[in-house]
Design a protein around this nucleic acid. Structure first.
Lengths: 206, 206
DNA sequence: CGCCTTCTTGACTTTGTAGTCAAGTGCCAC
DNA sequence: GTGGCACTTGACTACAAAGTCAAGAAGGCG
């Protein structure tokens, strides 16, 4: 029905604007315009701006999580799946950069709003589970050396991705996406006992 | 004289509020109150809010940089200096957490405001130089194994610190400061050919 | 048909805040 | 002293944006 349709449009518009301009810069009037609705309609569905933004944020993070950690790998090999995983987590232009920006925004707000921390922590939990499962698959299939501490490997990989990813995000000339990828791959290859080339040969999907 | 004094007070107040509440939440009236001045006085020194915030930000980042990368290590040994360096870069409660929050705020804004990117990049440059110099000192003194790729070691260390640090910042129950420290130390110890214990024995300064 | 509910609107009110203005105060130079 | 200059103030204006309200479509159901 048209009802829920308008509501969904408003929420979607709010998410777009949050990612584009930052939460604080989101104006109800702009959300309304983008959702082809009046400001009153926005207020009909969400009594306050705060309420709208809160729901939009949660919606955004679910979406970011699903995008990144949801889909199955295309590769048949665990090594290929791992290479895909790394690429999916770096701030490639487009949807992934958008996801990254929301992610950073969440870090920042979680510091100041304790009620947001569980959202961030949950997202890290999904991230970690997913990364561990990719690595575990390779250990079980025998592609990676046996005895790998899956949890530790995943944790380090995530930290490296986050650390290098941020530098890509700010367009640090000393750190572009290719470099971030190969640096993460190097550490991981050493840890898993595979050749670094097997992780970085593919062209980067943009 | 009293003139520059008031101006400095205003700038300092603005920095405090930026760190505490985020840039967008900073109100001129609040800055004025905190600096024991009138809003008109704020406008006397800074014609627009934008101008005030811009100057306050630059001031903040210089300060964060100086605090973190400025002072000489207390330890005589390179290993001790490195341990200190790691601790200084993690978001310990107090001044360092404040610095971290500003840092994250900068990441976020640099994405959207290209003119801020050089500020962020410069800060990373200082960070990198400083970290490299600590490591290089240890290589030269013979404490660390020879042939260490100083730049690579510094780069990885920074990425790990940033990656783990963020998780400490959001109070992820799976990542506290002690753990972040020991994980960074483990990687670094392996890379530099020293014992991990030599990097983590000291109690954490809080 | 005609009523009732849900969705939708435009016009209005209120509030918080950036920025202006004209006047006042103290201090230094001459 | 007095004229001028840098600093400081309170009162005011202008404006943007959140939120209210009463009334108007649209659509199902007796």
């Amino acid at each position: 029905m048209a009802a829920t349709d308008a509501r969904a449009r408003i929420l979607e518009a709010a998410c777009d604007l949050i990612a584009a301009d930052g939460i604080d810069a989101v104006r109800i009037a702009r959300v309304a315009t983008r959702a082809r609705a009046s400001t009153s309609l926005v207020h009909h569905y969400f009594s306050t701006r705060e309420e709208l933004l809160e729901e939009a944020l949660v919606h955004s993070y679910e979406q970011v999580g699903d995008e990144r950690f949801g889909d199955d790998p295309e590769s048949r090999t665990a090594t290929g799946a791992l290479a895909e995983a790394i690429d999916e987590c770096l701030p490639l232009p487009g949807a992934q950069e958008r996801g990254w920006v929301l992610w950073v925004e969440l870090w920042l707000r979680a510091v100041r709003s304790p009620e947001l921390r569980p959202v961030a922590v949950r997202l890290y939990g999904r991230y970690s589970e997913w990364m561990q499962s990719v690595i575990r698959a390779g250990v079980e299939s025998g592609e990676f050396r046996s005895g790998v501490d899956t949890e530790a490997a995943a944790r380090t990989t995530m930290a490296l991705i986050d650390g290098f990813g941020v530098r890509c995000l700010i367009r640090d000339p000393n750190m572009d996406l290719e470099r971030a990828r190969s640096l993460v791959a190097r550490e991981l290859a050493a840890e898993l006992g595979i050749e670094i080339e097997s992780l970085v040969v593919r062209p980067m999907e943009v």
